[in-house]
Nucleic acid binder design. Structure first.
Lengths: 214, 214
DNA sequence: GCCGTAGGCGTACGACGCACGCTTACCTCC
DNA sequence: GGAGGTAAGCGTGCGTCGTACGCCTACGGC
């Protein structure tokens, strides 16, 4: 009977993501999002509990395009594909990477995704502690790779600064920085993940690891 | 000839770390650190460029106890030990984990540490892209594991919330959350790292992986 | 003992998140 | 068609933050 709502969670998430993409991670504020929606700051609070809830909305929006159906193929390929889907979705919005990491536990999409990953691990023969440890290792790689891509992309300023160090003091570091500049984020992610999966295969499942070379 | 300085970077780092350890990550502010040092807020700026420089001081202090000498033994063991040293130093101050991750690129200690790690990788037979990829994979695991330990320690509230989900919707997730609660952070870190190292051994170096079971 | 340097810091400004309470648009029922 | 009640929209203000600016003053060297 009263006045109808004029905003949806989806529109709010879009506005916040637009702020993030356009002005960077430091520019996300209740005021900025409200302004982009054409409302007063405090009106936002009719739709969102607090800033943290806004951030959760953004994270859920970012993860929305992640396909949650289990891929076909060998378990190694299925895990590679599932992980890559999340990486790709998050990496599409670099300014939101810290948010995605911070709010990972409250995302329904990520919960479902985790259940699917556990399904694959179980089908591959893992249970109990080994399965838990494998999941955490996969998560650690995912989060760590995203964090690395955020703060120090291989082609970015960080790598350049490393290669500018005195080669006499850091011969390997400067050489490696140059090598690393030629690796794309996707390739970096896949190579590291393959190490993990080969280790999983070798240590627990007795399969022959793939070589990991293209 | 003028008035002597009354503070050292080291004392400032100690004060900031004390604030962090005592009041948590959200309590670190220029005012809080200055107060703990018994000075006015603005006096701090005589010793520190800005807040970011203060944080770098803290990170460097945290990493100071890391032993940078190369351990003995097989390369797998040496990498395990080097990684564990950094993990242990950072995990000793949970409230500072995000700072350590954010400022990893400006820490002289970590630069030296990275050079040592590259030394081990090189001695193990890796060069070029493979070496760069292996380093990034190790870093991703280190950062990801620290981030996981920070936001959702296996024994913490996050895991408890996961096991409280409806088992009908998330049968594997709830079961795994229970399994995971029995794993210590050190063990989690070591298990994941061993997967990585076994993968490295299997894929690139033709060695027989260790089983990873205690 | 004087003087210049640099240490110490009070004040103030523009952000931020958000509590509170007012005004007002809308829908429903007579 | 008018009245009433519900919740939308938002202005004001508080306490926090980082930090620019400029004053006062303690100190050490001549």
């Amino acid at each position: 009977m009263p006045r109808p709502r004029s905003l949806t969670p989806s529109r709010i998430a879009d506005a916040a993501l637009a702020v993030l993409d356009a002005e960077g991670h430091g520019a996300l504020s209740m005021r900025a999002v409200a302004a982009r929606l054409g409302m007063g700051t405090m009106s936002l609070y009719r739709y969102v509990e607090d800033r943290s809830a806004l951030e959760e909305l953004v994270v859920e929006r970012i993860l929305e395009p992640v396909d949650l159906t289990a891929p076909d193929g060998a378990w190694r390929h299925r895990l590679l594909e599932l992980s890559e889907r999340v990486r790709r979705a998050v990496a599409a919005h670099p300014a939101a990477i810290p948010l995605a990491i911070a709010h990972r536990q409250s995302s329904p999409t990520l919960l479902r995704w985790t259940e699917t990953v556990l399904d694959v691990l179980t089908a591959a023969g893992l249970t109990g502690h080994a399965r838990a440890a494998a999941l955490r290792a996969l998560l650690a790689h995912l989060i760590g790779a995203l964090e690395l891509a955020h703060g120090a992309p291989l082609q970015g300023e960080g790598t350049r600064r490393l290669s500018a160090l005195p080669p006499a003091d850091f011969p390997l570091l400067t050489a490696t920085a140059r090598d690393a500049a030629a690796i794309s984020p996707e390739e970096e992610f896949r190579l590291g993940l393959e190490l993990l999966l080969n280790g999983l295969a070798a240590a627990h499942l007795g399969e022959t690891p793939e070589t990991g070379e293209k």
